[in-house]
Nucleic acid binder design. Sequence first.
DNA 1: ATTTATTTTTAGATATATCTAATTTTATTT
DNA 2: AAATAAAATTAGATATATCTAAAAATAAAT
Lengths: 220, 220
Amino acid sequence: MELTTAEENYLKAIYHLSEEGKKSVSTNDIATAIQTKPASVSDMLRKLGEKEVIQYRKYYGLQITELGKRLALQTIRKHRLWEVFLVDKLHFAWDEVHEVAEQLEHIQSPLLIERLDAYLNYPKFDPHGDPIPDEYGDVRSRPRIALNEMNIDQGGQIVAVKDSSAAFLRYLDKVGAYIGARIKVLDKVEFDGSVEILVDQKKTLFMSKDVASNILVLQS
Amino acid sequence: MELTTAEENYLKAIYHLSEEGKKSVSTNDIATAIQTKPASVSDMLRKLGEKEVIQYRKYYGLQITELGKRLALQTIRKHRLWEVFLVDKLHFAWDEVHEVAEQLEHIQSPLLIERLDAYLNYPKFDPHGDPIPDEYGDVRSRPRIALNEMNIDQGGQIVAVKDSSAAFLRYLDKVGAYIGARIKVLDKVEFDGSVEILVDQKKTLFMSKDVASNILVLQS
DNA sequence: ATTTATTTTTAGATATATCTAATTTTATTT
DNA sequence: AAATAAAATTAGATATATCTAAAAATAAAT
Ligand SMILES: [Mn+2]
Ligand SMILES: [Mn+2]
Ligand SMILES: [Mn+2]
Ligand SMILES: [Mn+2]
């Protein structure tokens, strides 16, 4: 069972939406995620249904199948391994890797991925803190909490970001929030949900609720 | 000016055929090289003509333009850099790299190639001894002679192979002929053009004219 | 100089992936 | 419950890339 590049992109989007969104995934959601038109999505859903990577009933949502999950996780694995390569070996910034990994994830060669994984020393997380599935699609996920949901005086370590857009990542670079940083919540503003945190026991940072909600913390 | 993957593959084939074949490149030659049908080639030639990477007159051959050469060399540069990466870093055998490089060469990212080149320490030749064009398309070519055209007692160093097929490369591995090996012609058989050579001053090897003609030597 | 053979191009299909506009189905209001 | 709004699908185009079969142009042979 081989998928085209377009099919892999759709399936990956469907997998991500299924994971987070809980309830059923809508045609419009997919169209938004993948920057295309709903008409194109309908067409593709029919094809993905025929290939049995989703279960699809017209007008009623869809459900990703076990086969679909396995294939999506394979593509995600490739995407994240390439991101590690770009950052660790080619010294890309973490906001520069996404577009390129979006292309590299479609290269077909099991040997390549096996070797790349070994070369990178079997990394468990990508530069944005997202877990890298193993070759069987198993994901070791850590219990993470959004920074805006922590209470005053609670501490932890930044382990991932929800938003991987270049704009957001560059903002984090600028204010000095990075993956691995140890943080503690100093204050929370009831009114707008913004927070004040202490980074690495030396620097205080104010951030809006919007920003904080996109930072994931492993509590200690 | 951006080319599709298919256009890049055609242009690369046309460039290679133009270089070696001397005279004009035929539709059938391209079809053979690229494993497609002449009808498909005709169609593509029209498109490549419109994009001005070749000069095309129906029924009379074609000529690659300066623009076309520049773009072809860019793709060739990418292909060969990836081959070096696969062999040097991921420990692929030299007969395993071609298919994968054929895909990787189409990844669009100037930064990626720039960084990859630096990471590999600006290699000048790929694993098959072929020169890697610089970012401006300049190729430093060495004067090379086919092994079957050398005379008895002449010596040199194997620097490249003409045929990069897995079958041929594995044969060379098996008999112990590799790029970098120092060789000397011990004997030539008039009748069938086969040769006997001394490798690294210790091992003698017999090879047919067909094999010898695909081994390129830098004479000393 | 015709005839024949070869090469190349065109015509017409098929497959993928996308779009706009129209239609259909489901969901929400009144 | 009927009317209206929203979401999803289908119809019909366009663009790329490929194929087979037919036609046209060039090259080779008699
Ligand atoms: Mn992608
Ligand atoms: Mn990532
Ligand atoms: Mn290619
Ligand atoms: Mn090569």
